[in-house]
Amino acid sequence: MTEAKKTPLYETHLEHGGKIVEFGGWLLPVQYSGILEEHRAVREKAGLFDVSHMGEVLVKGDDALAFLQNLVTNDVSRLTQNKIQYTPMCYKDGGIVDDLLIYKQGEEDYLLVINAANIEKDWQWMQENKGNFQVELTNVSAKTAQLALQGPLAQSILSHLTDTKLEELAYYWFLPNVIVAGKETLISRTGYTGEDGFEIYCQAEDAAELWAAIMAAGKPYGLLPVGLGCRDTLRFEACLPLYGHELSKDISPLEAGIGMFVKLDKGEFNGQAALAQQKKNGVKRKSVGFVITGRGIARAEYPVMAEGRRIGTVTTGTYAPTLEKNIGLALVETEFAKVGQEFAIEIRGKNVAAQVIPKPFYKREGQKV
Rank of each mutant, 00 (worst) to 15 (best):
K104L: 05
W125C: 03
G151P: 01
K165A: 08
L158N: 01
Y171E: 04
N118E: 14
N132Y: 10
H160Y: 04
T164N: 06
A148C: 12
K165D: 15
E108H: 15
H160C: 06
K121G: 05
I157Q: 04
V97N: 01
L169A: 01
E107N: 14
A154M: 00
K143P: 04
E128N: 15
L137P: 02
W123C: 11
D93G: 07
I102C: 06
Y103N: 13
L153N: 09
L169F: 00
K143W: 04
E128T: 13
A117D: 08
D98M: 08
G106L: 07
L166E: 01
A117S: 13
D122N: 13
N139I: 03
L161E: 03
Q127V: 04
I114Q: 01
I157C: 07
Q146F: 00
Q127I: 05
M126E: 01
K143T: 10
V97F: 03
K104Q: 15
I119L: 14
Y103S: 12
K121V: 10
Q105I: 02
E107R: 09
K143D: 15
I119N: 08
I157E: 03
L166Y: 02
M126R: 06
E120Y: 10
I102G: 07
I96E: 13
K130W: 02
Y110E: 09
F133W: 14
D109Q: 12
L111W: 01
P152I: 02
P152E: 04
W123H: 10
D109F: 03
L112A: 05
A148H: 11
S141W: 02
N139F: 03
Y103F: 15
P152G: 06
Y172M: 15
G106W: 01
G95I: 07
D99C: 09
A116G: 12
A145W: 04
G94H: 07
E168K: 12
Y103Q: 11
D109E: 14
K121D: 12
Q146K: 14
L112V: 01
E168T: 11
Y110R: 05
K165Q: 12
I96T: 14
A116D: 11
A116P: 04
G95F: 07
K143M: 13
L169P: 02
G94V: 11
Q124A: 15
D98Y: 06
E107H: 10
V97P: 03
T144F: 05
A154Q: 02
W125T: 04
G95C: 08
Q105K: 15
Y103V: 08
N118P: 10
D93M: 05
L158P: 00
L100N: 06
N139V: 01
L166W: 02
D122F: 11
E120Q: 14
M126T: 05
L158K: 06
A117N: 05
D122S: 12
I114E: 00
E136G: 00
V97E: 06
